[in-house]
Design a protein around this nucleic acid. Structure first.
Lengths: 354, 354
DNA sequence: CTTAGCACTCAGGTGCGAAGAGTGCTAAAC
DNA sequence: GTTTAGCACTCTTCGCACCTGAGTGCTAAG
């Protein structure tokens, strides 16, 4: 059942107005819009039909209409006008992300904060590795008496290290041997391949440095496990409370609690196999607490096997046009910045805690 | 002006009751308490005097009394009964933090979440370095063709690294020379000592590897800068909304926004020169938005020059006895865990992003 | 097909009175 | 001198009735 052009226009107007005012929209308000050449009675008829079709709802008999979930869906998919970012907006986004971002965790936090600022909504930002992990190369470096630095190289030029302290002094040759054994047996092996037999075999071949083997392989396994790790940050939760739909504290609390826990784990996963910008309108959410909360998300590319997701959470009545436009632009700018070949920002080497 | 024993008892009772009920406390409610052997009239007189002394306040003529800031202060400092954690509580805290925590940033996040859970209030957790930073030792490692790993050793056994890719192949000897030069000139020098002259001098002595010098010293400086970095996490903001004092959404928003920004930067700094558990009662806060919000904080020891702070934010009417007890216990357990000599958790080497 | 007109519905604000909690003060009791 | 019973007074809170206004659906005329 295709909608007539006029119905679409009315529906669009209702959604637009409701997004602006957060109040049910009456027929009269519609007629007062520029280039709406019909009387309120005509609009009333159209609205009655749109209600029957399930695109609009009435909170009560004597109130205006508000969009239903289906109404928002249609609006997002077909009706809404493209929002063009002003020069000011693009500039302010660009200057915001211009700064060097050294560590992934700091980056994720900062991006969340920026996105939240740009949209005036709570924002989530995440970074995760997509590549499957294995050790490409082991390196053991003597560093002063009794100190050995273990360096692991992973695909995508990641380097991980650990300082090991030894009670006994091992000779240069012992280390060379151990390195050789490790590089021969343990490289290019995924986490599942770290079997007990294999590890024992390495130990037997390690000679004088055998006592180091468990420490090293433990660390290697830990590292591989961490590769799958996702870094998530949330920012600007308090912005929710500025919106009229969350004057109801209980409702606000439910949503915020769910952002805190659920979203942290699940939302980025939703984007795994999606592309572009994804909009989830209220009731389309699986989680009950989010039934009247919408989510908009986009992926961006960090390079080096890292993938980022940014998203915002807001009322079903959010300015989808503006939010999707800003989010997309953000994602684009971030991708550009991280994959720009001349000045790699995150790739290649970085701060370690230790 | 010392308070009589009876006045103290009355004041304590008022605060205790108000903490429990969040409603102004009347004279009758006090008389109904066990071992309160006076009539409501007597209590009324005492309360009138306590009000005159500034320890209690009256929202309006015909309401009960609530504690003033001075009243809370006295309560916290002298009046409140020690809250003894139950075995269950200590156990649940201990099992919660039992888990290995590899990376500082993850640790901080997790601790924040745990503390928030344990107190049912928003929690802040932070970790920062206290030691002044310099490079102790440079190490350059050849790692495959065109790849060099730069390893920096800092005081307290921290190790930081970076992978450098080179278009030209440098010989083993070139690297040895460069290492020697760096270790001779650039170790034990704080950030301020990285002058242009010094850096030029190093470049001139570096021979064939001179082109590496800027990259290396840039990274070294960046690393030293990051040493002062503080890792902060906030968790459980939504718990604020469960409390009756934050039914007023605007108030809640102001506080939460301030947790988001201000607290992130400033609160941990407050603990710099404090010791033990510190309580800031409502109006004692400098920030205006926090005038009716209390903060409780404690330091804990991570070892290796790292210092942690945990804290919670809540209404002035919070259960100080319980909160301080739980926070202290948390801090104690964390300190124990991190400084336990046999199984160092965070110290000595760790996951790097790169 | 569109529009003017009208009766109808219902949420939200306003005003008022009753109820209830708590106080301060006075005078009697211990 | 201290404690307590009693009472008048104050002030908030709650329920209730009422009114207003926005918006509707329907009908009949253009």
């Amino acid at each position: 059942m295709e909608l007539s052009e006029r119905k679409k226009k009315v529906l669009r107007s209702v959604v637009d107005l409701y997004i602006r005012t957060a109040e049910p929209v009456g027929s009269k308000a519609i007629t007062e819009l520029p280039d709406m050449k019909y009387s309120s009675a005509t609009i009333r008829n159209e609205m009655a039909e749109l209600t029957a079709m399930g695109y609009l709802e009435q909170p009560h008999t004597s109130a205006g209409r508000i969009p239903s979930a289906a109404g928002y869906r249609l609006y997002v998919d077909e009706l809404m006008m493209d929002y063009r970012l002003s020069i000011d907006e693009t500039r302010s986004i660009n200057t915001a992300i211009e700064e060097k971002m050294q560590r992934v965790d700091k980056m994720v936090e900062k991006v969340a904060r920026l996105v939240s600022q740009a949209t005036n909504l709570p924002a989530i930002s995440a970074a995760s590795r997509s590549a499957s992990a294995f050790i490409q190369h082991f390196e053991l470096v003597q560093a002063g008496p009794g100190n050995i630095i273990l360096v692991l190289m992973l695909p995508n030029d990641q380097v991980v290290n650990k300082l090991i302290k030894l009670p006994v002094n091992l000779g240069e040759t012992d280390l060379k041997l151990l390195s050789a054994v490790l590089n021969a047996s343990m490289t290019e092996i995924p986490l599942e391949g770290f079997t007990a037999e294999l590890m024992e075999k390495v130990m037997r071949s390690a000679g004088a440095a055998a006592s180091l083997v468990p420490v090293i392989l433990d660390f290697a396994q830990e590292t591989l496990k961490n590769q799958g790790d996702t870094n998530v940050a949330v920012a600007g939760q308090s912005r929710l409370l500025g919106l009229p739909e969350y004057r109801d504290v209980d409702k606000a609390q439910r949503v915020m609690a769910s952002i805190d826990e659920d979203a942290l784990a699940n939302l980025p996963a939703v984007m795994q196999n999606a592309n572009g910008t994804k909009v989830i309108v209220g009731p389309e959410n699986v989680a009950d607490e989010l039934k009247d909360t919408s989510v908009v998300m986009t992926k961006f590319d960090i390079g080096d096997g890292l993938q980022g997701v940014i998203g915002v959470v807001g009322p079903t009545r959010m300015d989808y046009a503006k939010v999707t436009a800003r989010l997309s632009y953000f994602a684009e700018s971030l991708s550009k910045m991280f994959t720009k070949p001349e000045t790699p920002q995150l790739p290649e080497g970085e701060q370690t805690e230790s």
